[in-house]
Design a protein around this nucleic acid. Structure first.
Lengths: 340, 340
DNA sequence: TTGTATGCGTTATCAT
DNA sequence: ATGATAACGCATACAA
């Protein structure tokens, strides 16, 4: 493998000249640049990035922390898209993307400490679910820029974070139904332990108020995000307080909710509209397909990475928050503008 | 940040002594080892891995290539699990895991060339779907060990690969029904362009023969892997040749197939059993939940990474193939041992 | 505009 | 068992 010295020798210049050319230093004559570039091609030379890393004290690497234990909040399809968004930016900057599971430990320390102390990373993206004060402290102490994906739950420390605009998403879903002349709009799957859920719920209430519809606590059912929970909640609603539209706070429960509607002899969207969030694949497999508030998860990763590089390039910057907007993806469980 | 020199100075030894201790060189007295270890702790010293990488000519990094374009064969939940399997092994070896999208290009070359030429990677894991001869050639020429995930379609070159044992999976599904006293076992979603599908189909035929059931081409329906295709294929089957069991060659189509069964006034498993492959989440959301041939995808990644390190540590090894076995995950669309 | 020399933090060779 | 020093491949301050 050719080194910078080989190139220098072959081109009859010094190594510094070659180095300058590699790094696009303008103080180089066109003639020598061309000559050196030619021999670089001939020798099929590429700079050794480990040597560059050492010399520049820069690993040119970003780390994405994942947490496989927490399938719920940083789950598969979501994660995959986020990662690709991040990746696009990272490689555009000619950095590499490392992935590490929070829970792996090396030499009696967490992988994140290992990476930082070994000078293997210049910045970190991590989901809010893995963020405890210890990690934050480590990152801040070592002055490693980082961006959190998902709104942090307890923010004693200021951090940079990027998330879906869940408040607006909740508003969007609700407004959609209001515009379709619904008045009894239910919200099922409320879970105050999940911050994204609280935000969506707040959006729901906001839109109701804005639309002049009085909030009715009887139209809100609390519960978890599973098929069976959705089924239970919808049945509870149907027994006591039949709505003309229902917002499912999360993906999985919407499948069970739809089922309950159908088993009661009703159908969506004819008897009541149904809308959910996020997971397009599941929404499209259902009968009928489920309308959702759609999120450009790829954009989420993209913005996270962009923000991270801003921090890297401008370490003094103050904390930022970025909310990705959502849009209504109409499928078969809603019928826009339908007169009632 | 403390360097090896700082430690040496503070402990009153030479840098070589410190280096030896870091690398567990036995030729060191217990006394000095302890002393140096202590000052390492005090100074909170960690070796700079970029310097180690340069000195050892080893980046201690493995690359996982992904291909976002090809959602079908290396799709989300699958990918996520595979990655975590790989990751476990990689970090256990004190390597890092890089992720790169095949399609990103840097400085007019593919990311894979960039990584290799920059000496940023010691080994590569890549899905069979992104494997063309050009990539193979690059990897082999540069003597980068690599492992393919998924059986390669056209194997002009010998490569190391790891996959699900799709043949056995097909046999398993079929035998399951034979053991449940089914005789008319259909196979829908046959797609000869997908190698995993061909394998499953071969397994189906094997098991039929072994069970003394004559193969009936009328029970095989060709088609793609989507909800709507599954629906179409099942209806075709119901019109011409009602089976007592149906094997769905892939996940998505099983949802549509089940729907068609139900719309015909039949139900699974009472009128016919239904079994599919892979995606547990979708299988568990359906009504009724769909039985599947289950794959330990995590294990797939684990084995791929293990194989990769074998190649790294023993470059002369000859090509290997590894098949991960599957198991029947009984859910509601099948009823084992049900008399007919 | 180009070259020389030094340093980045580590490992390894060769002494002692 | 330990130390001095060269090398790894590159970047850069300084000199010319």
């Amino acid at each position: 493998m050719a080194s910078i010295r080989d190139v220098a020798k072959a081109a009859n210049v010094s190594v510094s000249t070659v180095s300058r050319i590699i790094n696009n230093n303008p103080a180089i004559s066109a003639a020598t640049r061309e000559k050196v570039l030619k021999t670089i091609k001939e020798l099929n030379y590429s700079p050794n990035s480990m040597a560059q890393a050492l010399s520049n004290n820069n690993s040119y690497t970003i780390t994405l922390i994942v947490d496989i234990e927490d399938e719920k909040s940083f789950y598969n399809p979501f994660f995959h898209e986020v990662m690709h968004g991040i990746e696009k930016i990272v490689y555009k900057k000619e950095y590499c993307l490392n992935v590490a599971n929070l829970n792996t430990s090396l030499r009696n320390e967490s992988v994140i400490d290992w990476l930082i102390k070994g000078k293997r990373t210049e910045g970190v993206v991590l989901p809010s679910t893995v963020m405890d004060s210890r990690i934050i402290k480590t990152l801040k102490q070592n002055e490693i820029p980082f961006v959190v994906i998902g709104e942090p739950v307890s923010l004693k420390e200021e951090v940079n974070w990027v998330d879906i605009n869940n408040l607006k998403a909740g508003e969007q879903a609700t407004r959609y139904f209001i515009d379709s002349h619904c008045r009894k709009i239910a919200y099922i799957g409320y879970d105050e332990t999940k911050i994204f859920n609280r935000r969506r719920f707040q959006g729901y209430k906001n839109a109701l108020q804005e639309g002049g519809i009085e909030f009715d606590a009887g139209l809100v059912i609390e519960g978890g995000n599973s098929r069976d929970e959705g089924y239970r909640m919808m049945n509870e609603l149907l027994k006591n307080n039949v709505p003309d539209a229902v917002i499912c706070a999360d993906t999985l429960l919407s499948v069970g909710a739809l089922r309950a509607i159908q088993e009661s002899g009703r159908s969506a969207p004819e008897d009541m509209g149904l809308i959910s969030f996020d997971n397009a694949q599941i929404a499209e497999l259902s009968y009928p397909t489920i309308s959702t508030i759609n999120v450009d998860v790829n954009e989420l990763g993209l913005q996270a990475a962009k923000l991270l590089f801003e921090l890297i390039e401008n370490p003094g910057a103050r904390e930022q928050t970025l909310l990705i907007s959502t849009n209504v993806e109409e499928r078969e469980t809603t019928a826009a503008g339908k007169p009632r």
